[in-house]
Design a protein around this nucleic acid. Structure first.
Lengths: 210, 210
DNA sequence: TAGATTGTTAATCGATTAACAATC
DNA sequence: TAGATTGTTAATCGATTAACAATC
């Protein structure tokens, strides 16, 4: 359907979504690309171009209806459906994600955690059970699982990713800091390399100092 | 010094750094842009262009010395110096960062956590004390603090960022999902919007399904 | 209708890739 | 020296911005 939309555009959509929710909460009914551009510090041109990749959501002479646009972007981002999430690696980061309620309100529901540490297997995080990693196959065969968050050491990430692909997972949200080697085109991989981000920060500090 | 280098290039540097460390650990001494390009799945041209923004690290007919290049990129990223980090918001995510030993080995040392919750103030995470947020000013005046990680609810993020800027902090690593309004050009802001990343993932799942 | 603002085409800008002379 | 591979310039590609006709 919407083919060939660049990831540069896609990456900006959540940000629009965020600003529109704020406007909505403030009771603002309509917004022009110009007003939004001032708020978001991007060009009005970019906003109109970005949105028109997905359809004409505005009206000449009026602008955009905030609620309508908010909901449309929600649909574009797939937030109108529920995504079941499992978390592999129930360490601090895994538990942080499991505990983060906001993801639920966006439709991302954590259904299980997995770990290899016998001391935490069987325990619960916010009512969600920590399973043994060995049970991954059985669990995935018996539950609908859309997304797996990998919050585990990088040594076993590649192997686990492979198992997940074979189990027909749709997407991997990878926090392990390797670049996963997933050939299967139908599996979406999104990397969050926190240390890369910290290094970029550090680069900019050093640059600023000069 | 190195002026006008685009963030697109900077963002790729940590990735080079990662691959070079892997090569180093494997005992590889030299690598050509062509070999590296196959490994990293980028063009050799891009590698050479990227690196030459910072200087000529290679040698015609030979390629790049892995150890030398690794160390040079480390310097470019400011990893040859220690950065002191404070974490504001000692919830799951804050504690996950404090517990993550790898940052230490990159020279990012967590020196304190802050929170408003009296139940956790005074406790420790990996030997690092959780302070009352009220003590922020006193702490920063008495310790060298380079980076503040904001792992707190978005409601108070703007206000806290302002306090940090006034305290002369160098950089803010922002996990609160607002776009911080920091005017001061000398303060580096790096945003990590986990929910944005999850929405991008979700977009790509929906797109793939069609 | 007149004014406002979109949707969309055209122009510009920047980033990526290709090519090749320089040189180890 | 000959072969290999960089550093760098030129060509291409894609993304952003500007402009404006369409239209509410």
């Amino acid at each position: 359907m919407e083919k060939g939309i660049s990831q540069a555009v896609v990456r900006r959509m959540p940000r629009y979504y965020r600003y529109l929710r704020d406007l909505l909460e403030q009771g603002v009914e309509r917004v022009s690309s110009n007003e939004l551009s001032k708020l978001m510090k991007v060009t009005a041109s970019q906003i109109r171009q970005d949105l028109n990749n997905f359809g004409g959501f505005g009206q000449q002479g009026y602008g955009y209806n905030v609620r309508f646009l908010y909901e449309e972007i929600g649909k574009i981002l797939g937030l109108d459906q529920t995504h079941n999430l499992i978390i592999i690696g129930a360490g601090n980061l895994g538990q942080a994600i499991a505990n983060y309620g906001r993801f639920d309100s966006l439709g991302f529901v954590t259904v299980a955690l997995f770990d290899v540490n016998p001391e935490i297997i069987g325990k619960e995080v916010r009512g969600i059970k920590i399973h043994a990693l060995d049970e991954l196959e059985v669990f995935c065969q018996n539950h609908k699982v859309d997304i797996a968050a990998l919050t585990m050491p990088k040594q076993s990430a590649d192997n686990t990713a492979q198992r997940l692909v074979e189990l027909g997972i749709r997407a991997i949200w990878n926090f392990a800091h390797v670049d996963l080697d997933v050939d299967d085109e139908s599996v979406v991989v999104e990397n969050v390399h926190l240390s890369d981000s910290l290094m970029q920060l550090s680069y900019n500090i050093v640059k600023n100092k000069q």
